[in-house]
Design a protein around this nucleic acid. Structure first.
Lengths: 146, 146
DNA sequence: CTGCAATCCGTAGCCGCTACGGGATCAAGA
DNA sequence: TCTTGATCCCGTAGCGGCTACGGATTGCAG
Protein backbone atom coordinates (compact mmCIF):
# COMPACT_ATOMS: atom_id res chain seq x y z
CA UNK A 1 0.00 0.00 0.00
CA UNK A 2 1.59 3.16 -1.10
CA UNK A 3 1.14 5.23 2.01
CA UNK A 4 4.45 6.82 1.25
CA UNK A 5 3.18 10.21 0.21
CA UNK A 6 0.62 10.71 2.98
CA UNK A 7 0.62 13.51 5.53
CA UNK A 8 2.60 13.05 8.71
CA UNK A 9 0.79 13.19 12.04
CA UNK A 10 2.54 16.43 12.95
CA UNK A 11 1.31 18.05 9.79
CA UNK A 12 -2.20 16.80 10.35
CA UNK A 13 -2.08 18.02 13.93
CA UNK A 14 -1.04 21.50 12.88
CA UNK A 15 -3.59 21.86 10.16
CA UNK A 16 -6.53 20.25 11.94
CA UNK A 17 -5.88 22.01 15.22
CA UNK A 18 -5.94 18.74 17.14
CA UNK A 19 -2.92 17.93 19.27
CA UNK A 20 -0.68 15.17 18.05
CA UNK A 21 -1.14 13.04 21.12
CA UNK A 22 -4.85 13.60 20.99
CA UNK A 23 -4.93 12.27 17.44
CA UNK A 24 -3.18 9.10 18.56
CA UNK A 25 -5.62 8.90 21.44
CA UNK A 26 -8.59 9.20 19.08
CA UNK A 27 -7.12 6.44 16.99
CA UNK A 28 -6.60 4.25 20.05
CA UNK A 29 -10.22 4.60 21.13
CA UNK A 30 -11.44 4.01 17.59
CA UNK A 31 -12.89 7.43 16.98
CA UNK A 32 -10.87 7.84 13.82
CA UNK A 33 -9.57 5.04 11.62
CA UNK A 34 -5.93 3.99 11.75
CA UNK A 35 -4.09 5.48 8.79
CA UNK A 36 -1.54 3.76 6.56
CA UNK A 37 2.09 3.67 7.54
CA UNK A 38 5.35 4.56 5.92
CA UNK A 39 7.98 1.84 5.60
CA UNK A 40 9.51 3.09 8.83
CA UNK A 41 6.21 2.83 10.67
CA UNK A 42 5.18 6.47 10.77
CA UNK A 43 1.52 7.32 10.23
CA UNK A 44 0.67 8.60 6.77
CA UNK A 45 -2.72 10.27 6.48
CA UNK A 46 -4.91 10.90 3.49
CA UNK A 47 -6.39 14.37 3.11
CA UNK A 48 -9.78 12.98 4.06
CA UNK A 49 -8.50 12.41 7.59
CA UNK A 50 -8.17 16.16 7.96
CA UNK A 51 -11.86 16.64 7.40
CA UNK A 52 -12.78 13.97 9.89
CA UNK A 53 -10.50 15.44 12.53
CA UNK A 54 -11.79 18.93 11.92
CA UNK A 55 -15.30 17.59 12.41
CA UNK A 56 -14.26 16.02 15.69
CA UNK A 57 -12.55 19.16 16.89
CA UNK A 58 -15.51 21.32 16.04
CA UNK A 59 -17.82 18.93 17.83
CA UNK A 60 -15.61 18.93 20.93
CA UNK A 61 -15.57 22.71 20.89
CA UNK A 62 -19.32 22.60 20.94
CA UNK A 63 -19.18 20.32 23.95
CA UNK A 64 -20.26 17.02 22.41
CA UNK A 65 -18.88 13.98 24.22
CA UNK A 66 -16.72 11.42 22.47
CA UNK A 67 -19.63 9.01 22.32
CA UNK A 68 -21.92 11.64 20.86
CA UNK A 69 -19.29 12.39 18.25
CA UNK A 70 -19.00 8.71 17.45
CA UNK A 71 -22.72 8.73 16.71
CA UNK A 72 -22.55 11.96 14.75
CA UNK A 73 -19.70 10.68 12.62
CA UNK A 74 -21.79 7.67 11.71
CA UNK A 75 -24.75 9.85 10.87
CA UNK A 76 -22.62 12.23 8.87
CA UNK A 77 -21.49 9.61 6.44
CA UNK A 78 -22.65 10.43 2.95
CA UNK A 79 -25.43 8.12 1.94
CA UNK A 80 -27.62 8.15 4.98
CA UNK A 81 -27.41 11.66 6.30
CA UNK A 82 -30.35 11.36 8.60
CA UNK A 83 -30.91 14.93 9.66
CA UNK A 84 -33.63 13.83 12.00
CA UNK A 85 -31.27 11.57 13.95
CA UNK A 86 -28.64 14.26 14.05
CA UNK A 87 -31.17 16.68 15.44
CA UNK A 88 -32.01 14.24 18.23
CA UNK A 89 -28.38 14.09 19.33
CA UNK A 90 -27.95 17.83 19.08
CA UNK A 91 -31.11 18.52 21.01
CA UNK A 92 -30.14 16.15 23.78
CA UNK A 93 -26.84 17.95 24.02
CA UNK A 94 -28.51 21.31 23.97
CA UNK A 95 -30.65 20.22 26.88
CA UNK A 96 -27.50 19.24 28.83
CA UNK A 97 -25.91 22.57 28.07
CA UNK A 98 -28.96 24.43 29.27
CA UNK A 99 -29.07 22.41 32.47
CA UNK A 100 -25.43 23.22 33.14
CA UNK A 101 -26.05 26.89 32.53
CA UNK A 102 -28.96 26.86 34.94
CA UNK A 103 -26.84 25.15 37.59
CA UNK A 104 -24.01 27.59 37.21
CA UNK A 105 -26.35 30.56 37.18
CA UNK A 106 -27.69 29.47 40.55
CA UNK A 107 -24.17 29.18 41.94
CA UNK A 108 -23.28 32.51 40.48
CA UNK A 109 -26.20 34.19 42.16
CA UNK A 110 -25.38 32.74 45.56
CA UNK A 111 -21.69 33.50 45.33
CA UNK A 112 -22.12 36.99 43.96
CA UNK A 113 -24.63 37.94 46.60
CA UNK A 114 -22.46 36.57 49.37
CA UNK A 115 -19.20 38.06 48.18
CA UNK A 116 -21.04 41.31 47.71
CA UNK A 117 -21.81 41.41 51.40
CA UNK A 118 -18.11 41.13 52.32
CA UNK A 119 -16.86 44.21 54.07
CA UNK A 120 -20.23 45.85 54.17
CA UNK A 121 -21.32 44.09 57.29
CA UNK A 122 -22.35 46.03 60.31
CA UNK A 123 -21.04 45.50 63.79
CA UNK A 124 -20.28 41.77 63.81
CA UNK A 125 -17.17 41.28 61.67
CA UNK A 126 -17.97 37.70 60.70
CA UNK A 127 -17.31 36.50 57.18
CA UNK A 128 -20.35 36.11 54.94
CA UNK A 129 -18.64 33.52 52.76
CA UNK A 130 -17.70 31.34 55.69
CA UNK A 131 -21.16 31.68 57.08
CA UNK A 132 -22.53 30.49 53.78
CA UNK A 133 -20.24 27.47 53.76
CA UNK A 134 -21.02 26.64 57.34
CA UNK A 135 -24.71 26.71 56.67
CA UNK A 136 -25.96 23.18 56.88
CA UNK A 137 -28.75 23.31 54.38
CA UNK A 138 -31.56 20.85 54.31
CA UNK A 139 -30.33 18.48 51.61
CA UNK A 140 -28.58 15.29 52.53
CA UNK A 141 -29.63 15.17 56.13
CA UNK A 142 -31.88 12.29 56.90
CA UNK A 143 -30.32 11.12 60.12
CA UNK A 144 -32.94 9.76 62.40
CA UNK A 145 -33.27 7.45 65.34
CA UNK A 146 -30.75 4.93 66.66
CA UNK B 1 -7.53 6.65 73.13
CA UNK B 2 -11.11 6.19 74.04
CA UNK B 3 -12.47 6.33 70.53
CA UNK B 4 -14.97 3.72 71.50
CA UNK B 5 -18.06 5.90 71.60
CA UNK B 6 -17.41 7.87 68.40
CA UNK B 7 -19.67 7.93 65.36
CA UNK B 8 -19.22 5.28 62.71
CA UNK B 9 -18.37 6.32 59.17
CA UNK B 10 -21.76 5.16 57.90
CA UNK B 11 -23.52 7.36 60.43
CA UNK B 12 -21.34 10.31 59.56
CA UNK B 13 -21.96 9.67 55.89
CA UNK B 14 -25.71 9.66 56.35
CA UNK B 15 -25.86 12.75 58.47
CA UNK B 16 -23.30 14.82 56.59
CA UNK B 17 -24.61 13.88 53.17
CA UNK B 18 -21.16 12.81 51.99
CA UNK B 19 -20.83 9.30 50.61
CA UNK B 20 -18.94 6.84 52.73
CA UNK B 21 -16.29 6.17 50.11
CA UNK B 22 -15.92 9.85 49.51
CA UNK B 23 -15.21 10.41 53.18
CA UNK B 24 -12.45 7.81 53.04
CA UNK B 25 -11.17 9.48 49.90
CA UNK B 26 -11.09 12.87 51.62
CA UNK B 27 -9.16 11.34 54.46
CA UNK B 28 -6.71 9.71 52.05
CA UNK B 29 -5.95 12.99 50.32
CA UNK B 30 -5.64 14.77 53.64
CA UNK B 31 -8.65 17.03 53.28
CA UNK B 32 -10.06 15.88 56.60
CA UNK B 33 -8.06 14.50 59.52
CA UNK B 34 -7.96 10.79 60.21
CA UNK B 35 -10.32 9.99 63.07
CA UNK B 36 -9.67 7.68 65.97
CA UNK B 37 -10.35 3.97 65.66
CA UNK B 38 -12.26 1.41 67.61
CA UNK B 39 -10.39 -1.64 68.90
CA UNK B 40 -11.48 -3.49 65.80
CA UNK B 41 -10.09 -0.81 63.52
CA UNK B 42 -13.31 0.96 62.53
CA UNK B 43 -13.25 4.72 62.24
CA UNK B 44 -14.82 6.57 65.18
CA UNK B 45 -15.61 10.22 64.55
CA UNK B 46 -16.13 13.08 66.93
CA UNK B 47 -19.16 15.30 66.34
CA UNK B 48 -16.82 18.04 65.12
CA UNK B 49 -16.02 15.95 62.05
CA UNK B 50 -19.63 16.35 60.98
CA UNK B 51 -19.26 20.10 60.79
CA UNK B 52 -16.08 19.87 58.79
CA UNK B 53 -17.62 17.42 56.34
CA UNK B 54 -20.71 19.54 55.96
CA UNK B 55 -18.49 22.49 55.18
CA UNK B 56 -16.73 20.46 52.51
CA UNK B 57 -19.96 19.24 50.99
CA UNK B 58 -21.42 22.70 50.86
CA UNK B 59 -18.27 24.00 49.23
CA UNK B 60 -18.30 21.25 46.63
CA UNK B 61 -21.93 22.00 45.89
CA UNK B 62 -20.89 25.55 45.22
CA UNK B 63 -18.26 24.28 42.83
CA UNK B 64 -15.09 24.92 44.79
CA UNK B 65 -12.24 22.57 43.92
CA UNK B 66 -10.62 20.35 46.50
CA UNK B 67 -7.60 22.63 46.65
CA UNK B 68 -9.77 25.68 47.13
CA UNK B 69 -11.56 23.90 49.93
CA UNK B 70 -8.27 23.00 51.51
CA UNK B 71 -7.48 26.71 51.57
CA UNK B 72 -10.91 27.67 52.84
CA UNK B 73 -10.75 25.14 55.64
CA UNK B 74 -7.50 26.68 56.78
CA UNK B 75 -8.98 30.15 56.65
CA UNK B 76 -12.11 29.07 58.45
CA UNK B 77 -10.28 27.96 61.55
CA UNK B 78 -11.37 29.98 64.52
CA UNK B 79 -8.64 32.37 65.52
CA UNK B 80 -7.62 33.79 62.21
CA UNK B 81 -10.79 34.05 60.24
CA UNK B 82 -9.38 36.29 57.57
CA UNK B 83 -12.49 37.36 55.72
CA UNK B 84 -10.39 39.22 53.22
CA UNK B 85 -8.49 36.07 52.20
CA UNK B 86 -11.70 34.12 52.01
CA UNK B 87 -13.15 36.74 49.74
CA UNK B 88 -10.16 36.42 47.40
CA UNK B 89 -10.74 32.69 47.00
CA UNK B 90 -14.47 33.15 46.53
CA UNK B 91 -14.02 35.89 43.99
CA UNK B 92 -11.55 33.85 41.97
CA UNK B 93 -14.06 31.04 41.92
CA UNK B 94 -16.86 33.37 40.99
CA UNK B 95 -14.80 34.56 38.06
CA UNK B 96 -14.35 30.94 36.91
CA UNK B 97 -18.05 30.30 37.21
CA UNK B 98 -18.86 33.36 35.16
CA UNK B 99 -16.37 32.35 32.48
CA UNK B 100 -17.96 28.92 32.26
CA UNK B 101 -21.41 30.43 32.00
CA UNK B 102 -20.25 32.69 29.20
CA UNK B 103 -18.70 29.75 27.34
CA UNK B 104 -21.82 27.68 27.67
CA UNK B 105 -24.07 30.55 26.70
CA UNK B 106 -22.15 30.90 23.45
CA UNK B 107 -22.52 27.19 22.75
CA UNK B 108 -26.16 27.35 23.61
CA UNK B 109 -26.75 30.15 21.17
CA UNK B 110 -25.00 28.36 18.32
CA UNK B 111 -26.69 25.05 18.99
CA UNK B 112 -30.14 26.51 19.49
CA UNK B 113 -29.97 28.54 16.34
CA UNK B 114 -28.73 25.60 14.33
CA UNK B 115 -31.18 23.07 15.68
CA UNK B 116 -33.92 25.62 15.13
CA UNK B 117 -33.19 25.59 11.43
CA UNK B 118 -33.68 21.83 11.21
CA UNK B 119 -36.62 20.89 9.06
CA UNK B 120 -37.37 24.43 8.06
CA UNK B 121 -34.87 24.43 5.27
CA UNK B 122 -35.94 25.19 1.78
CA UNK B 123 -35.17 23.07 -1.25
CA UNK B 124 -31.79 21.57 -0.35
CA UNK B 125 -32.45 18.92 2.32
CA UNK B 126 -29.01 19.15 3.90
CA UNK B 127 -28.63 19.03 7.66
CA UNK B 128 -27.89 22.32 9.41
CA UNK B 129 -26.21 20.60 12.34
CA UNK B 130 -23.87 18.62 10.14
CA UNK B 131 -23.09 21.71 8.16
CA UNK B 132 -22.18 23.46 11.38
CA UNK B 133 -19.89 20.63 12.41
CA UNK B 134 -18.28 20.45 9.01
CA UNK B 135 -17.54 24.13 9.05
CA UNK B 136 -13.82 24.54 9.44
CA UNK B 137 -13.68 27.74 11.34
CA UNK B 138 -10.62 29.92 11.47
CA UNK B 139 -9.13 28.85 14.80
CA UNK B 140 -6.40 26.29 14.91
CA UNK B 141 -5.35 26.50 11.32
CA UNK B 142 -1.90 27.85 10.87
CA UNK B 143 -0.64 25.42 8.30
CA UNK B 144 1.82 27.15 6.06
CA UNK B 145 4.69 26.38 3.82
CA UNK B 146 6.82 23.23 3.60
C1' DC C 1 26.52 11.25 5.57
C1' DT C 2 25.50 13.75 9.37
C1' DG C 3 22.75 15.80 12.62
C1' DC C 4 18.65 17.06 14.46
C1' DA C 5 13.67 17.28 14.21
C1' DA C 6 9.83 14.39 14.14
C1' DT C 7 7.68 10.29 15.33
C1' DC C 8 7.27 5.85 17.50
C1' DC C 9 5.13 3.33 21.66
C1' DG C 10 3.62 2.27 26.26
C1' DT C 11 2.65 3.98 30.53
C1' DA C 12 1.32 7.07 34.15
C1' DG C 13 -0.82 11.14 35.73
C1' DC C 14 -4.62 14.71 36.12
C1' DC C 15 -9.65 15.50 38.90
C1' DG C 16 -13.10 13.83 42.01
C1' DC C 17 -14.93 10.46 42.90
C1' DT C 18 -17.28 5.45 42.45
C1' DA C 19 -17.26 0.53 42.34
C1' DC C 20 -15.56 -4.00 43.34
C1' DG C 21 -14.48 -7.87 46.23
C1' DG C 22 -13.20 -10.73 50.01
C1' DG C 23 -12.52 -10.58 54.67
C1' DA C 24 -13.09 -8.60 59.50
C1' DT C 25 -16.00 -6.41 62.99
C1' DC C 26 -20.11 -4.63 65.22
C1' DA C 27 -24.56 -4.61 67.43
C1' DA C 28 -28.94 -6.47 68.24
C1' DG C 29 -31.98 -10.33 68.81
C1' DA C 30 -32.88 -15.17 70.48
C1' DT D 1 -23.78 -16.55 74.83
C1' DC D 2 -24.14 -17.21 70.19
C1' DT D 3 -25.62 -16.07 65.74
C1' DT D 4 -26.82 -13.49 62.25
C1' DG D 5 -26.80 -9.83 59.06
C1' DA D 6 -25.40 -5.13 58.52
C1' DT D 7 -21.52 -2.48 58.45
C1' DC D 8 -16.82 -1.41 57.69
C1' DC D 9 -12.03 -2.59 56.42
C1' DC D 10 -8.45 -1.95 52.57
C1' DG D 11 -6.37 -1.81 48.13
C1' DT D 12 -7.06 -1.33 43.51
C1' DA D 13 -9.15 -0.17 39.13
C1' DG D 14 -12.14 2.50 36.39
C1' DC D 15 -14.66 6.77 34.51
C1' DG D 16 -13.73 10.93 30.59
C1' DG D 17 -10.64 13.25 27.82
C1' DC D 18 -6.81 14.08 27.38
C1' DT D 19 -1.49 15.38 28.52
C1' DA D 20 3.19 14.34 29.65
C1' DC D 21 7.26 11.55 29.89
C1' DG D 22 11.17 9.24 27.95
C1' DG D 23 14.12 6.23 25.34
C1' DA D 24 14.38 4.43 20.76
C1' DT D 25 13.72 4.88 16.01
C1' DT D 26 12.91 7.29 11.40
C1' DG D 27 12.77 11.22 8.15
C1' DC D 28 14.76 14.61 5.75
C1' DA D 29 17.61 18.94 4.79
C1' DG D 30 22.18 20.50 4.23
Amino acid sequence: MRASHGLSIGRVARSSGVHLETIRYYERIGLIPAPGRTEGGHRAYEPLALRRLAFVRRSRELGFSIEEIRALLGLAEPGHRACEDVRVVAEAHLKDVRAKIADLARLEAVLAETVGRCGTEGPAPSCPVLELLETADAKGRRDSKT
